[in-house]
Amino acid sequence: MVARERILEVALRLFRTYGVKGVTMFDIARDCGMSKKTVYEHFSDKQSLINEGMEQMINGHSAAFQETQTNAENAIDELVRNMKYITSMARSFNPVMLFEIQKYHPDTWNKIESFQRNCILYGITENLKRGMSEGLYRQNLDLDIIARMRQLQLDAAFDQLQYPADKFEMPVVMEQVTAHFILGIATIKGHKLVNQYLQIKEEE
């Protein structure tokens, strides 16, 4: 791995774990096992590292969602796979990073918001269309309203005010809100698949 890639990988890991404000260029250099001078040879300042790190993270998420859309057997399978991906990502993700970027790095935050609109919201809408065409989601769904509601659910799961980490586990929150969401939009045919994918035990 070349030095630049190594620096970016380490920086993104530290940002995801501790947030961006408390991580210094010295911290990044130390974890890379190189001098701070070497880090500065590849990145002029921490802001450039934040920008490129967030861009890499966004591109990774986009590729993962696209792969899921292509390989999923149906809309519910796609939605559950995305939930598991987000949950897996969240295990090594400190929500304070997004809070600090929003507060202290507005230009970078604008890029994240653009990703949320152009990728996340679009992907949710396309999943709803797919589920309706497959007979798994109800036909009377208002796509714009339901897609935005789902996006708000995902945003809330990362919100420390709504689900503080000392009281809620991210995987549990994500599974609960996703199960509630799918069961609310699914047809009878869809419910059978939901129970299968989420291993929900039907009431006697």
Results as ranks from 00 to 15, higher is better:
139 Q>F: 09
73 E>Y: 03
19 G>S: 11
75 A>S: 09
6 R>L: 05
175 E>G: 00
21 K>H: 07
53 G>I: 03
76 I>Q: 01
181 F>P: 00
118 N>T: 11
2 V>W: 03
94 N>L: 08
65 F>Q: 07
160 Q>I: 07
20 V>P: 02
51 N>K: 07
91 R>C: 02
54 M>I: 05
160 Q>T: 06
41 E>T: 03
114 S>N: 03
156 A>P: 12
153 Q>V: 06
47 Q>K: 11
190 G>E: 04
183 L>I: 14
113 E>F: 03
29 A>P: 12
72 A>R: 00
127 N>D: 14
194 V>S: 09
132 M>C: 08
24 T>W: 08
145 I>Y: 09
130 R>Y: 13
31 D>P: 00
14 L>F: 08
122 Y>S: 12
128 L>M: 09
138 R>E: 14
147 A>P: 15
186 A>F: 03
78 E>K: 13
23 V>P: 15
126 E>L: 14
75 A>H: 00
118 N>G: 14
24 T>I: 05
19 G>Y: 12
155 D>C: 13
21 K>N: 07
157 A>H: 10
70 T>R: 09
163 Y>C: 02
17 T>L: 13
128 L>D: 07
26 F>K: 13
4 R>K: 15
61 H>G: 00
2 V>M: 10
123 G>S: 14
71 N>V: 11
174 M>A: 00
173 V>W: 12
73 E>I: 01
99 F>C: 01
204 E>H: 12
152 L>G: 04
91 R>N: 01
195 N>M: 14
52 E>F: 06
187 T>W: 01
187 T>S: 02
29 A>E: 06
55 E>A: 08
54 M>Q: 07
37 K>M: 07
149 M>E: 07
12 L>P: 00
170 M>A: 02
116 Q>M: 01
144 D>L: 13
102 Q>L: 06
55 E>L: 04
172 V>Y: 06
30 R>N: 06
81 R>D: 10
139 Q>H: 15
5 E>D: 07
15 F>P: 03
